[in-house]
Design a protein around this nucleic acid. Sequence first.
DNA 1: TGCAAATATTTCGGATACTAAATAATTATA
DNA 2: TATAATTATTTAGTATCCGAAATATTTGCA
Lengths: 146, 146
Amino acid sequence: MDEFNERIDVLKTLKFIMNMIHKSMEDEFRELNITGPQGMIIGILMRHRKMKISELSKKMGLTSSTVSGIVDRLEKQGMVKRERSSDDRRVVYVNIDEEFRKKSKEVFKKVEDKFRDMMNKATEEEHDEIVKGLNTLKRLIESNKQ
Amino acid sequence: MDEFNERIDVLKTLKFIMNMIHKSMEDEFRELNITGPQGMIIGILMRHRKMKISELSKKMGLTSSTVSGIVDRLEKQGMVKRERSSDDRRVVYVNIDEEFRKKSKEVFKKVEDKFRDMMNKATEEEHDEIVKGLNTLKRLIESNKQ
DNA sequence: TGCAAATATTTCGGATACTAAATAATTATA
DNA sequence: TATAATTATTTAGTATCCGAAATATTTGCA
C-alpha cells in the first residue's frame, strides 16, 4: 500500500473506532432512558456533583439557553435539581439526584468494565502498541493545534 | 502509572482525538453552510453520485422519513436534486448538484490535506506507531463484537 | 387479468436540541 | 447611586429524529 492511502486509512480506522464507541455510549444512555446531550450533562455531574449552568455550557460548548432547556427536561424527570446560589443569586447550580446518581454510576461502570475487559483480552504487546499509537497521535494533534 | 489507569487513559485519549476530529468536521460543514446530518449526506453523494433514499437511510442508520426531511432542506437550497427512477417509479434517486459538488470537493479536500499535512509532520517511526496502534485497536474491537 | 401483498417514499404529529435576541434579576463599578 | 456587566431564562425559529399512516407503484398469485 502506498503512503498516500495509508494516511487516509488512519482517518477511516479512526471513524470506525469512533462509531463503535458512539454505539456503546448510545446503549449506555438508552439504558438510563436519556438522550445524548442529557447523558453528557449527567456524565459531568457524576464527577462534579454541583455545576453552574454557565460551567456546563462552557464544558459542553453550547449556549446557556441550550443547557437550560436540557436541564429543564432532566429536572422534569427528577434526574437533577436546580438550586439557586445564596452567595450570588444570579447563579443556578445543577445537582444530580442521589437516587439517579447511584443508578447511573452502575451503568457507566458497566460500560467502563466492558471496555477494560476488552483491553484485557489484548496481549501485553498489543496493549502497548495501542497506548503508544494513540498517545503519539494525540501529541501530533496537540503540536499542530496552536 | 499502573495498569488500571493506563487502560482508562486509552478511553480519555480516544475522546480527545474524537473531539478534535469532530471540530474539524464542524468547520468543514460550516464553510459549506450545512449542518452535520446534511454534511453526512453530501459526503456520501460525493463518492456515489446517485443514491436511493433507502440506501442513504441504511448507510446513515436513520429512518427514511428522517432522510427524506434532510433531503428536502438540501433540495430547497439547490444542493441536491431528486430524480424519480424510470426503472422502478417508486424509487427516488438523490443527485448532488454539480456546482455544489465542485465547491464541496474543494472544502473536503482542504480538510483531508490538513490531516495529511499533519501526518506528514510525523517521523516515519511515529507514523508507523500510529498506524499500528489504531489497527490493533480496530482488530481488538472487531474480535470482541460478534 | 385482477386483486392482495410488498416496497419506496412522503406526510404528519410530537419530542429534543440548537441558536440568537430579548428579558429579568443581581452584582460590580465609576 | 446610576450605569454597566454578568447570569440565567424565555421566546421564536430551524433542524433533527422517530413511528404511524397515507400514497404510489410494483410484484405475486389465484
